[in-house]
Amino acid sequence: MSALNLIDGSETSLRRFLQTLPGVDQIGAQERAAMLGTRSIKTTSKKWAIDMAISMIDLTTLEGADTAGKVRSLCSKALRPDPQDASIPHVGAVCVYNDMVGIARKHLDSIGGQSIPVAAVATAFPSGRASRKVKLQDTKDAISLGATEIDMVIDRGAFLSGQLGEVFDEIRAIKEICSDKAHLKVILETGELVTLDNVRKASYLAMLAGADFIKTSTGKVTPAATAPVVLVMLEAVRDFFELSQIRIGVKPAGGIRTTKDAIKQLVLVKEIAGAEWLNPELFRIGASALLNDLLMQRMKLSTGRYSSANYVTVD
C-alpha cells in the first residue's frame, strides 16, 4: 500500500510524519465552516441533496435496550424509508452492535435488502477500554456474523498519552482481520481529542494504518460531528489523496438530526474534499432521527406544504 511509504511503521517515523502536518487554527476553521454553513440550497439541488443524504445514512441503533424486534424494524426502514414512495433510495447501511449483526443481516436478506451492508461497532465500543485480545475477537465475531463494515474506536487514552504506535498497531491489527471481508471505519471520538490539531493527527494516523473511512464519533460523547471537525477531516482525506492517490471516506456521526444539518455536511464535502466524495462509497452520515426529517422535507418539496411526523414511520 503506497500510503505506507510515508512511514516505515515505527513509532518514530509515525511521530515524525505527524509532526510535519501543519497546525489548524481553530478560529479560522470555525469561520470557514460557518461561512459554508450559509450556503443556500434550493429547489433542484435540495431535492438532489436530500436523496443523496438518505443514501448516505448509516441508519443506527446502539442502545443497551436494542432487541431483535427493534433491529428488524430498523432494517425494514433502511430498505424502504417510506413504504408509500418507492422512488426513495435505501440508506447506506444499518449500524448495530455486534450481537445484532446476524439478526440484521438475516432480516435484510429476507426482505430484499441484500445490497444494504450491515456495519458493526467493534473493539469495545464506545470506550475502547478492553484488552487487544477482546477487541480482535469482537471484530472477528462481527465479521463472522455477516458484518461487511466495521466501525472501530481508537484508543483515545493511548493517543492522548502519546502512545501513537499503540494506536497505529491496533488499527493495523483490526484492519488485518477485516482484510477484504469488511470495510474499516475508524472512529476518532473527536469530542475526546478536543483540539483540531489532534483531529488532524488522528485522521492521518488512521489513514496511514489502513482505515477505509475515518469517522468522527461514537455518538456517545458530545460534542460529536461539529462542522469544524468534519471540515478538518475532509481536508485530511483530500490532502491524503494528493500524497497517496487513495481516497479515504469520511463519516460524521452524532448530532446530525435535521435536513439542514445534513445538507451542510454535503456542502462541506463538495467544497472541501470535492465532488468525488459525494457518494455513499466515500461519505456516510451516522444517524437515526435524521432520516425522518429528510423524508418530511422531501414531502414538503413535492407537495409545497410542511409535513407532520404522523406521515413518517417511527422505526
Binding site: W48, L266, L278, N279
Partner: peptide, 10 residues
C-alpha cells in the same frame, strides 16, 4: 451520479 450544483438562491 449528478453533481451537486447549487440552484440559484436569489
Amino acid at each position: 451520479m449528478s453533481d451537486f450544483e447549487y440552484a440559484p438562491a436569489p
